[in-house]
């Protein structure tokens, strides 16, 4: 049974002009995305800045409201929920942000930061139970329970990210959107946080949407990978299949652009020309065609549909084989 099913999800932001703030154009940040996630699974979402990956993540936990489409979580349609019913479901969907320094309130102690959600959702009753629960959460993420009365500025970047994780775990979610959780951290600390997320998944059966631009981290951490370009998912499959047998020319370029650590295998880089086009006026046909080294005439007017090219490996490209 699927934990999360997303169908034709669209998030369009209006660009307003004039006295009456009339929307004249739309930024098509997420433009028809389909994806699925099983319990305990990690889906890695990669793409360049501006491709809509963060917006997609935020839409899944309804931090932004989608303009169209459907999100089914545990069989419940999230987009029709409001008020109390929404709050109840939100408890099962949490988020971890990129910059832990700005995601934590500098004036609150760690205890208040982690405990706030416990109160809102009335998870524990009584001060003693609350204290115990917070102590347990801090221990779970590798912090010392005695640190509960400290403030965020007293912690290093990696420790702050642990606090963010403890806060997300407080409400016992089943699904966590991790939006670039390690990209603001030092290389030597990244591995600690990645390993922690991995252990928590094994202990609690959490499902993750792991958003990152670093393909190597995503490959390492995810079961499946989805590659996003201009609001569309253009390739998706198992992590192994997508990184070793990429079929979409964009994915191929993305992978060849990752600098290899071994100086003797300087990869032949497929260097893409140009920049990502504006999501206000995405190109007609295949969104990637203006930068695609293989583009043919039909790529210019006919949008490709996803095809299953290898088992469980879907590619939106007319030319992929």
């Amino acid at each position: 049974m699927k934990l999360l099913e997303v169908t034709d999800l669209q998030v369009h932001f209006p660009v307003e002009r004039g006295w009456f703030r009339k929307p004249i154009e739309f930024v098509k940040a997420v433009d028809g995305v389909n994806l699925e996630l099983a319990p305990g699974e990690t889906l890695g979402l990669v793409g360049e800045s501006g491709c809509g990956k963060s917006t997609l993540g935020r839409a899944l936990v309804r931090l932004v409201n989608p303009t169209a489409g459907r999100i089914r979580f545990n069989g419940i349609d999230l987009l029709t929920l409001e008020g109390k019913a929404l709050r109840q479901q939100r408890r099962k969907l949490q988020m971890i942000f990129q910059d832990p320094a700005s995601a934590l309130d500098p004036r609150l102690t760690i205890e208040s930061i982690v405990g706030e959600a416990l109160e809102i959702h009335q998870i524990v009753r009584g001060r003693k139970a609350r204290r115990e629960r917070i102590g347990q959460l801090l221990t779970d993420v590798g912090l010392h329970p005695d640190h509960r009365n400290r403030y965020p500025h007293e912690f290093s970047g990696g420790q702050r990210q642990r606090i963010g994780i403890a806060r997300a775990l407080a409400v016992e979610p089943r699904f966590i959107v991790c939006d670039e959780p390690v990209s603001a951290l030092d290389v030597s600390v990244q591995a600690q946080v990645v390993n922690l997320l991995h252990d928590l998944q094994e202990q609690r059966g959490l499902a993750y949407l792991f958003i990152a631009h670093d393909l190597a981290v995503v490959e390492h951490f995810s079961h499946r990978i989805a590659v996003m370009y201009l609001g569309n998912i253009i390739e998706t499959g198992s992590a192994r299949s997508v990184t070793r047998l990429p079929r979409h020319p964009y994915t191929q370029a993305l992978i060849s652009a990752v600098p290899a650590l071994d100086p003797l295998t300087r990869r032949t880089r497929i260097v893409l020309g140009g920049d990502v086009p504006s999501p206000i006026h995405p190109p007609k046909g295949c969104p990637f065609h203006p930068r695609c080294p293989l583009a043919e005439s039909r790529c210019r007017y006919e949008p490709p549909v996803p095809r299953e090219i290898l088992p469980q490996h879907w590619v939106s490209c007319h030319l992929a084989k």
Partner: peptide, 16 residues
């Protein structure tokens, strides 16, 4: 501690 594309490793070696 740096993950590399195409190399299997279950856990990254973290520097404490």
């Amino acid at each position: 501690s740096v993950p590399q594309l195409g190399k299997d490793r279950a856990r990254l070696t973290a520097i404490p």
